[in-house]
Design a binder for these strands. Structure first.
Length: 382
RNA sequence: GCGCAGGUGGCAGAGCGGUCAAUUGCAUCAGACUGUAAAUCUGACGCCUUCGGGCUACGGGGGUUCGAAUCCCUCCCUGCGCA
């Protein structure tokens, strides 16, 4: 992998770049749509490409459970397996320590602001806390398989081994994503584990895949900086920034400002799991080159289309009488060929094509949105 | 015509004398969703309200009762069976 920075903004930390992978180029900043189970849900790989996706991210944990990395490897690797001959990353499975652990227990996402009514306010995860379904040790994490119920173990070595078998262009170090409500002491303990695991990942990788190390540290300034410095010292090919990022957009920007200055400038920085439309410009201005997010695809399966003025909920009856395309300014094939009343009908009739059309449009819309931000950097606008 | 079963809010379907403006599901309406969980979660859902409450409701009419969606009579309607 090679990363070339073409331009650095004078107005912000934004930069324009090109990432070269064995499967082609990625123009950065770029959104990396999520293909957890080696598929962008509802779309074929050709459709994901037509929706202007440059790179996808699949998941180690999910693919380890099914079909198992051996099957993927024997098929010729994940690119061949899913017929995606473009750049591809795999997430390490570290996020599942959180999402199947405290995230599941508390019913929260990693961004605290979403917690309905902030019911968990005052709740603190202390130093010795353990989630119910995941047991975290200094070695790694014991998961209960959601499929068979049996206990399975994934640590840094296991994660790297699985990711090498899967064969993506870029792989991530195994980390622990700490949940909102974590106490300082808990995060301190967790980043110690994440750092130890990062070193093990570096030492155990045999392939020539690019390996990104992940910075953690939650909302604590000294821990974020400490984590950034340490991860930066290990010689990774790039960086991931993960974990809890506070409650507001300002928090997120502030936390990034504690991290970015400690990372080698010439290496790509990937923001894990963040990428709503109103986040994009902020994180890019903070110096982020890549980011993945489930929002365009996940919301599509909830009936939501993102359009120029905001978002539309196609499950509403009002759209049954609306003959306009989802977005009259959008050039995607869905907006060229279908109207809101038809998509609303498909949604009401519970036809899966509604989800497909919305997924395609949302991805195209998000990708164009980022393309426009790249243009703004070129034009010295941000 | 006779016998049996039944008629409850947009629909389906509970309730079978007071705690029923009426369980629940669907539909409808509003909101949520950030390293994915494909059909999820939260709230509203008779009318009016100064949010205390008031009014009209369980096929129509009448009756019993302090009190009826719930019991009785009668009429209308629906389904099944027999002539």
């Amino acid at each position: 992998m090679e990363f070339n920075i073409l331009k650095k903004s004078k107005k912000s930390n934004a930069r324009l770049g090109v990432l070269k992978t064995p499967h082609g180029l990625v123009e950065t900043p770029a959104l990396v749509p999520v293909a957890t189970q080696a598929v962008v849900k509802t779309l074929t790989s050709e459709e994901a490409e037509a929706a202007k996706c440059q790179m996808l991210i699949a998941n180690t944990f999910h693919l380890h459970l099914k079909p198992g990395e051996k099957i993927v490897k024997n098929s010729g690797g994940i690119h061949e397996f899913m017929n995606w001959n473009r750049p591809l990353m795999t997430d390490s499975g570290g996020f599942q320590i959180f999402s199947l652990g405290f995230g599941y227990d508390l019913g929260v996402g990693k961004v605290l602001g979403f917690f309905p009514g902030k019911k968990g306010e005052g709740l603190v995860i202390d130093k010795t806390a353990q989630p119910k379904k995941v047991r975290i040790t200094s070695q790694g994490a014991y998961f209960k398989s959601p499929i068979t119920g049996e206990e399975l173990f994934i640590g840094p070595k296991e994660s790297i081994k699985i990711q090498e078998a899967l064969g993506a262009d870029i792989i991530f170090a195994f980390d622990e994503c700490t949940p909102p409500f974590s106490s300082y002491e808990y995060v301190q303990k967790a980043i110690k584990r994440t750092h130890d695991w990062a070193k093990i990942c570096v030492d155990n990788k045999k392939s020539n895949q690019a390996l990104f190390g992940i910075v953690q540290g939650s909302k604590f300034q000294d821990l974020r900086s400490e984590s950034a410095k340490y991860i930066n010292s290990l010689g990774f090919d790039g960086f991931g920034i993960g974990g809890d990022l506070g409650e507001t957009k300002k928090d997120m920007t502030k936390i990034l400002s504690w991290i970015i200055p400690h990372l080698d400038e010439e290496k790509p920085r990937h923001m894990l799991g963040i990428g709503r439309l109103d986040d994009m410009e902020n994180i890019i201005k903070s110096g982020i080159d890549l980011f993945d997010c489930t929002v365009p695809t996940h919301y599509a399966r909830r009936g939501i289309a993102f359009v120029s003025g905001g978002k539309l909920n196609l499950s509403k009856s009002i759209f049954l009488k609306d003959k306009k395309p989802l977005d009259s300014k959008c050039e995607c094939s869905v907006c060229q060929n279908y109207k809101r009343h038809y998509i609303a009908h498909l949604w009401k009739a519970k036809e899966i094509t509604a989800m497909r059309l919305l997924t395609f449009h949302n991805l195209y819309f998000f990708n164009i949105f980022v393309e426009n931000i790249r243009q703004k950097i070129k034009n010295n606008q941000i």
